[in-house]
C-alpha cells in the first residue's frame, strides 16, 4: 500500500507486459525487461506475465557465457526493488514444458489459463513482446 505522501497526481493505468518468447534466441525478452524497468518510474499498476515460451525467460540456472551473451536473468530478481511485484506464470504453459514453480528464478504466482484470462480483461494497456 502506498503511503499518503507517496500518492502521485495523474492517471494510474493497469499495464500488463506479456512475455511469450524464450530468451537469447531473440532479443525480445531482454528488451521487454528494459521496458518493464522503465515503467517502474511512472507509478503505474504493472504486472508481468510469462506464458508460452516466455516461461523459459525465468528458468533458474541460466549460464550464457558459452554463447557470448549477457545473462540478464538475475535482473528479474531485482524487479522487487523497483516495486514490480506482480509476476505471473501461466500454469498450463509451465506444466506443458515440464517445469514447476521451483524451476523459476524469482517468486511468481501461478495462474490457470482462465485466471490469467480474467486478469487480462482487467487491464488498460497490454504490451506483448
Amino acid at each position: 500500500m502506498a503511503e499518503p505522501w507517496e500518492e502521485e497526481e495523474g492517471p494510474v493505468k493497469k499495464f500488463m507486459f506479456v512475455n511469450r518468447k524464450a530468451p537469447y534466441g531473440t532479443i525480445y525478452a531482454l528488451e521487454s525487461l528494459e521496458v518493464v524497468l522503465i515503467s517502474a518510474a511512472f507509478d503505474q499498476d504493472v504486472s508481468l506475465v510469462f506464458m508460452d515460451d516466455g516461461v523459459y525467460q525465468i528458468k533458474k540456472g541460466q549460464d550464457s557465457k558459452g554463447i557470448g551473451m549477457k545473462n540478464f536473468s538475475p535482473t528479474y530478481r531485482a524487479l522487487e526493488g523497483y516495486d514490480i511485484e506482480k509476476l505471473f506464470v501461466e500454469k498450463e504453459s509451465m506444466e506443458s514444458r515440464g517445469l514447476t514453480a521451483e524451476d523459476m528464478i524469482v517468486p511468481v504466482e501461478i495462474l490457470s489459463k482462465d485466471e490469467l484470462t480474467s486478469l487480462m480483461e482487467e487491464q488498460d494497456v497490454i504490451l506483448t513482446f
Binding site: G10, P11, K13, F15, E34, V35, I38, S39, A41, F42, Q44, D124, V125, L127, T128, F129
Partner: peptide
C-alpha cells in the same frame, strides 16, 4: 528518446496497438 515515451503513450492514449 527514452522508453519512458512508450509508457507515457500507454498512459495518455486511449488505445495502444502493437505491431510486431
Amino acid at each position: 528518446s527514452g522508453l519512458g515515451q512508450l509508457i507515457e503513450a500507454g498512459i495518455q492514449a486511449e488505445r495502444l496497438v502493437v505491431f510486431g
